[in-house]
Write a protein that binds this DNA or RNA. Structure first.
Ligand SMILES: [Mn+2]
Ligand SMILES: [Mn+2]
Ligand SMILES: [Mn+2]
Ligand SMILES: [Mn+2]
Lengths: 217, 217
DNA sequence: TTCATTATTTAGACAAATCTAAAAATTTAT
DNA sequence: ATAAATTTTTAGATTTGTCTAAATAATGAA
């Protein structure tokens, strides 16, 4: 059994290792809002518990055991987010902090029953995949909106940036999950994207487009 | 804001002070599964935070601030129990440990929405009252027979278990709706209840007593 | 390659919550 | 009232997770 703190480290390492592997001490320190020295201490401890492979000065990777633990925390986090939005009418930008706490509740029965109660959702309110109880993710294929070309059509199925300011911005633009979009033009000089949403033309910056995930169809 | 640990202490002190006031160090130690020395340390800390009135060697009482904090934790604990039983099909004997963790999640929005989602329940799955957000308990006219104390009198007004075996058992004992009862004693070692029904003394198990609802009068 | 900069680790300290063992206060029994 | 038993507190140590400051390793530039 891991402590609340160890679980947070494992989850962060899991997320960071999708970007660069092995994961470096400072990257963890920044994400977890702590000092590099504290991270080093924790990496040694996680290494002793065989949850990570840690090589001094080189960085850290998750072991199989560490990875499945991390995925389980991600599963719990996302299921709770679905619960908050679908059942308790939270907005998608209000759920993160609470889920950050709820993900640490220890009870397999609880999480299995919650999954069932929510009807085995495959994605969370931000479009992120929810692993099943064996740690497997469904393979839905997303593309970043910023990668699409004129005349491409698709549906918004996720976001890759979860800050409340970003989510509220999307809401204001009407770019919420499930909306169908069509690319009109990608502007040369700033990479901004002109698109059509519900017969409405709009222009969004490349920065925003990068964080919107589209299922083409 | 209090730590997880401080919250557990406050809740235990709250419950124990219904039995004896002030609450003694050893009583807390026993309930919280810790050593008396640890309790003393924590009482000093809670006293510094003005959550309890602590007098060396005399014991401890909750301040107003401490009491309302404790009641809020009790509220959260019981609401989560209702959620687990009503929505996730937990049995009433499976909920306690999970609620013991869930009660510490910090989010007023969460608990207000949960309350609403559950339709503002007044009692938890064990028949214990759920305080509202202002800390007020409803005064329901009925109580579980197992919650009564010696010399309490009342009338049987309902049951909370409807299986035919249980109802036949009550019939055989003469414990039917409308009968007046009086508690003689609640036995320490098994929680069974000695009571008087129509000048007749009898002893019923705690399990049976829990499912009989009484209107005190 | 040598020096400067940046990243990481070590050393030593601290706060929270706990423990054991010993001391002190309180209660109970003689 | 005095001694014995019990309860509670203190003293000092331990574990977990954190920190600052100093040392060391790795990287990048001249
Ligand atoms: Mn977390
Ligand atoms: Mn999410
Ligand atoms: Mn608890
Ligand atoms: Mn209960």
């Amino acid at each position: 059994m891991q402590s609340y703190t160890e679980e947070n480290y494992l989850k962060i390492i899991y997320h960071l290792s999708e970007i660069s592997n092995p994961v470096l001490t400072n990257a963890i320190a920044e994400r977890i809002q702590t000092k590099a020295a504290s991270v080093t201490d924790m990496l040694k401890k996680l290494s002793d518990k065989e949850l990570v492979n840690y090589v001094k000065y080189q960085g850290v990777t998750l072991t199989e055991k560490g990875k499945s633990t991390a995925i389980n925390i991600v599963r719990k986090h996302r299921l709770w987010e679905v619960f908050l939005v679908d059942k308790l009418n939270f907005k998608w930008d209000e759920v993160h902090d609470v889920a950050e706490e709820l993900e640490h509740i220890q009870s397999n029965l609880l999480i299995e029953r919650l999954d069932e109660f929510l009807d085995f959702p495959k994605v969370d309110p931000h479009g992120d995949l929810i692993p099943d109880k064996y740690g497997n993710f469904a393979d839905l294929s997303f593309a970043k909106l910023s990668k699409l070309k004129p005349k491409d059509k698709g549906t918004i199925t996720g976001v890759s940036e979860h800050s409340s300011t970003f989510l509220k911005h999307l809401e204001k633009l009407g770019l919420t999950l499930g909306k169908r979009i069509e690319i009109i033009e990608v502007l040369e000089f700033d990479g901004s994207v002109e698109l059509l949403v519900e017969q409405q033309k709009m222009n969004i910056s490349r920065e925003v487009a990068k964080h919107i995930l589209i299922t083409k169809n």
